[in-house]
Design a protein around this nucleic acid. Structure first.
Lengths: 141, 141
DNA sequence: ACGCTAATAGGAATCATATGCATCTGTAGC
DNA sequence: GCTACAGATGCATATGATTCCTATTAGCGT
């Protein structure tokens, strides 16, 4: 996955934690949890408080720079740069590996919602199953 | 939504909390959280402990009697009877109302997963947006 | 009815996330 | 470049959902 950049909104104060967090997300090749972001920052020699990471991520989501996704019944929220082309993931039920999907079933689908005036803003989709490493183990149980 | 029944597995001990929980779910017209189930039981005059409710729900999920779903980035897990025809929901971003959908985009969709040997077991889909009551409020912000 | 096993009550622990407040830091205006 | 102030962070502590622990209780096979 190519490293991609997000434009820094002009009215957004540049502070060290914010730049660290964005930089971690730019380098990430998969969605990260707040805690993973935090330890990535520590590893790079900077420091960051988890509460700050949460606050900044929430802000980034509000600014549209970052997307928040929930995986496997939402034990933990994950964050990734908003790659306007949106993405879905397949999740392994055994090892919790996250594998990107390249297409989206919603592209040409009209949901039949019982509230006919519902204004659709977006969607989450998650496929679950067994990845190629875990499938054999699973079958032999 | 019609009240529907689930068969009680023959090897499953019948205890008061379990029967209460199943009965609440049978009467429910929407997915419920563990706490909602708990208070519904209290309201019916019985008593139930949250920890028991969680344990029983987990058991029911394992037995395939109940489905666990996550809504809006998984703040809270919701549970409903497993209606083998599976279902998806639209969720209002403002009032968190849950509106059933009658069709499913995955029926004739082949996900293009980067792990080509991934064995798909199922999926979660959630549409989010604004329901007819909240859409006007949203637009006037 | 008896006894064994599994289930529950009750509470305390845990995990992710949010919040409150004092202190610090970007940055707009000079 | 300096200053002031709004807004951000460091840090501790709260919160809400869920899980875990253990003594007690209750199904159910015999």
């Amino acid at each position: 996955m190519k490293e991609l950049k997000v434009e820094w909104p002009s009215n957004l104060k540049r502070t060290k934690p914010r730049e660290c967090i964005l930089s971690v997300l730019e380098k990430a090749d998969k969605p990260l949890s707040a805690m993973e972001i935090c330890s990535a920052i520590e590893k790079s020699g900077e420091s960051a408080w988890l509460s700050t990471v949460y606050r900044v991520l929430e802000l980034f989501v509000k600014k549209g720079m970052v997307a928040k996704i929930a995986i496997l019944n939402g034990e933990t929220a994950l964050y990734e740069l908003n790659r306007f082309e949106h993405k879905h993931y397949a999740v392994c039920l055994m090892c919790h590996k996250i594998i990107p999907m390249d297409n989206c079933p919603m592209e040409k689908f009209i949901p039949n919602i019982q509230d006919s005036d519902f204004r659709v803003m977006g969607h989450n989709l998650e496929i679950y199953g067994y990845c190629k490493d875990c499938d054999p183990k699973q079958r032999s149980l």
